[in-house]
Design a protein around this nucleic acid. Structure first.
Length: 436
DNA sequence: TCTGGGGTCCTAGGACCC
DNA sequence: TCTGGGGTCCTAGGACCC
């Protein structure tokens, strides 16, 4: 097998270390050196952990009620997630990183890929070290950088940069710097489940076939594994061998669906409360729909009981309602969501979660089937202006300032968020104060 | 008492059509 | 005894990602 050494293109994966925790630490240095976790919605489970929290054995996704004691014993802190803050810090981090390559794909809130084509004469390792120092200096966020000839290898190098003692110090791992036998050694130390695209299920099945490490997978036969798994795994094997199959996506692909759902702060029994909840979710989804310039052809409404309670009667219904013409109108979406709930609601269950999903999304300009709509164009336009005003007011004054009556006022079913930090970067009242 | 939310893609199988 | 075959579309389920 030909070994890729210095290929015409290289990819870097840059990601924030323990991103949510790092964001919180930027604004509260008192969190430095202590075990810190950031909790999911509803203060349900740990979604980000500081190194100190990881050292205590706190797993990703660990339920808060199971780790609260442990954390307290070690002087630890748990925080509710503050997505407005993380989103703002993310934009700052991404804009600094963007200076280091003309091609950037923002892959998630805390990571991005860079592509280096025509950088053959560059020392990418030194380039990555400068990037890392500058992001740290300008945003306060520590990042790791992995470099390789495919996105999968860049991810893997990033894993080594953060986890392997040989690289952790510098926070940069460039596979180009390693001789082939050296690469084999490192890839043999990485569990196959750490490879991008291999989850727990596949890792277990691969283990049964004697494939335990990233190196084992790299040497496996792509054709055989395509038949036993899917083309996705075949592609991963080729990527591990330095053949780039997953292109950089600079522009986000067209959105396929919009989901708005939440677990409730406590079990909900009353239909009236569920009606408020699905109305609120429909309104929230509608805002995102309009922000992206889309209209929905159908809406799905679903309910769920709590699967974690042993012996609890379970019920997970869903129903899909189509629109005569695609719509982005909050009132229509709420109306459909309520109708959908009416179809699936059964009394006697303790509901834990509800949600709506908007599907069959089209650009809002594309109007089909308008023939059968009542009201015609002038009415539609007035409606559009009203919704624009609603969106811009809520964007300025805060979500929920102006809302539809169906969404309810008290929202007693709402989520818990008891450990929230301030909007340090997005809210005047949350500005950090320097004392001296 | 207490266990997140929001996405994508692939595959298998059934319906339907000619 | 014996009961076509191939293409397309849709959906549900299962896997993955952060």
């Amino acid at each position: 097998m030909p070994h890729p050494r210095r290929l015409p293109q290289q990819y870097a994966l840059v990601d924030g270390n323990n991103f949510f925790v790092s964001c919180e630490r930027v604004f509260d240095p008192g969190l430095e050196g202590r075990p810190v976790v950031v909790l999911s919605n509803n203060d349900g489970c740990a979604v980000a952990r500081s190194d100190e929290a990881k050292a205590l054995g706190i797993r990703m996704g660990a339920p808060y009620f199971q780790i609260r004691e442990l954390l307290a014993r070690h002087g630890g802190v748990a925080l509710s997630s503050n997505y407005v803050l993380y989103g703002d810090m993310s934009r700052r981090m991404m804009s600094v990183v963007a200076h280091y390559s003309p091609e950037q794909e923002v892959y998630s809130i805390d990571e991005c890929f860079l592509r280096f084509a025509g950088f053959g004469h560059w020392d990418l390792t030194a380039h990555a070290r400068r990037l890392r120092a500058q992001v740290r200096q300008w945003t306060g966020i520590p990042v790791g950088v992995g470099i390789g000839p495919s996105k999968t290898l860049a991810k893997l190098a990033n894993h080594l940069a953060k986890k392997h003692p040989d690289f952790r110090e510098g926070g940069v791992c460039n596979l180009q710097d390693l001789a082939p036998w050296h690469q084999i050694r490192y890839l043999s130390e990485v569990d196959v489940g750490e490879v991008w695209g291999v989850g727990p299920r596949w890792a277990a099945r691969l283990g049964e076939l004697g494939i335990h490490s990233a190196q084992d997978l790299r040497q496996a036969d792509p054709e055989t594994l395509r038949r036993r798994f899917s083309v996705v795994l075949e592609r991963t094997i080729r990527e591990l061998n330095g053949l780039s199959c997953i292109p950089l996506e600079e522009a986000p692909p067209a959105r396929q669906q919009i989901i708005a759902s939440r677990s409730f702060g406590h079990p909900v029994i009353a239909k009236a409360e569920l009606l408020e909840a699905v109305s609120t979710y429909a309104a929230r989804a509608a805002v995102r729909l309009r922000r992206d310039g889309l209209a929905a052809g159908a809406i799905q409404v679903y309910l769920a009981t709590n699967p974690f309670i042993p012996g609890e009667p379970q019920y997970h219904p869903a129903t899909l309602l189509g629109f005569a013409a695609p719509t982005a109108d909050t009132a229509r979406l709420i109306q459909a969501a309520r109708a959908g709930l009416g179809r699936i609601f059964k009394p006697g269950y303790r509901y834990k979660k509800a949600g709506v999903m908007l599907v069959d999304l089209l650009p809002a300009g594309v109007r089909q089937g308008e023939l059968f709509e009542v009201g015609g164009e002038p009415r539609q336009e007035r409606r559009g202006r009203l919704l624009e005003a609603l969106d811009s007011l809520n964007a300025r004054m805060g979500r929920g300032t102006l809302r539809f009556a169906a969404e309810g006022v008290a929202q007693s079913w709402g989520m818990r968020r008891e450990r929230l930090t301030a909007g340090y970067t997005t809210d005047w009242d949350g500005l950090a104060v320097a004392r001296g």
